[in-house]
């Protein structure tokens, strides 16, 4: 294992993050605040409670998930796409590193950034609503797993993308709709029965449900199922990445 390589990539990626630290903090804080103003104050005042939780608090886990998934994906995809785009990828390809080390470096950094932003949003939420976290350890575990698995997905997107439009495509057209339709702002029990069934095909539903359980102790779906879903998603991403590096797909001629 080339630990120095993992460290080098990780530090390099994190230093890019710290160069733009203020942007990294300000934009999630502003957008979260907007969600609270719109959904929490304006609309939420007309919604009593969802499953015994005030609506403002109810949307906190979904909001965190929305940002964390988007941030993990875009950070990881940009991280690996950029060296491809400017040509510095030659160094990674000619270095004595395996796919595992490159992945750990990039995905580790992207997951760290997403985790950081998730924490910032959680702290911002405390300014607006009262939240009690019933299962803090489970909450952290869900957060870390979500950051990691979506960073893995982003890493695949970054390798696949041939231009900047494709880089934006999946987060915009796939992740954001799945998160919005995945019960970020509502409980799926509020949907008509047909849509409840259809929603179960959305993998994000399981993540948000599990994450919400760690906050309030209630969930749309069993927690075990949520864990299984996120483990399965991570495994699929890892297998895809292993295949990519084995064949050199989109990396080596």
């Amino acid at each position: 294992m080339n630990l120095y390589a993992i460290k080098a990539i990780y530090i390099f990626e994190m230093s890019r993050f710290f160069r733009t630290l203020w942007q990294s903090i300000v934009s999630p804080v502003v957008s979260t605040s907007l969600y609270f103003v719109v959904f929490g104050a304006a609309i939420g005042s007309r919604i009593d409670q969802v499953e015994g939780v005030s609506y403002g608090a109810f949307i906190v886990p979904g909001l965190i998930m929305l940002s964390v998934m988007t941030q993990a994906t875009t950070n990881a995809s940009f991280g690996i796409y950029f060296p491809k785009f400017i040509g510095t990828i030659y160094e990674h390809l000619s270095a004595p590193v395996s796919f595992l080390e490159i992945t750990l470096g990039y995905v580790g950094a992207a997951a760290t950034k997403a985790l950081f932003i998730g924490s910032v949003i959680l702290l911002t939420a405390y300014l607006f609503v009262d939240i009690q976290i019933q299962h803090p350890l489970a909450m952290v575990a869900f957060l870390v797993l979500t950051c990691t698995s979506f960073a893995l997905l982003g890493f695949i997107i970054g390798i696949w993308a041939g231009n900047f439009e494709q880089l934006q495509l999946i987060p915009l057209l796939v992740i954001t709709p799945l998160v919005f339709l995945g019960g970020s702002f509502y409980s799926i029990s509020m949907l008509p029965p047909v849509w409840q069934t259809i929603t179960l095909f959305n993998p994000v539903v399981y993540l948000i449900s599990g994450f919400r359980w760690s906050f309030f102790g209630t969930a749309d779906l069993p927690v075990g199922l949520s864990l299984l879903a996120i483990a399965g998603f991570t495994a699929i991403c890892l297998a895809t990445i292993a295949w990519i590096f084995k064949t050199g797909w989109r990396l080596r001629d």
Partner: peptide
């Protein structure tokens, strides 16, 4: 390499240290 591809925003000493780390 033939083309001078570099990370524009990185400092000289940092990018050289990065290469050393990447090579283990």
């Amino acid at each position: 390499p033939q083309e001078t591809h570099v990370e524009s925003f990185e400092k000289v000493v940092k990018t050289v240290q990065f290469s050393r780390g990447l090579f283990g």
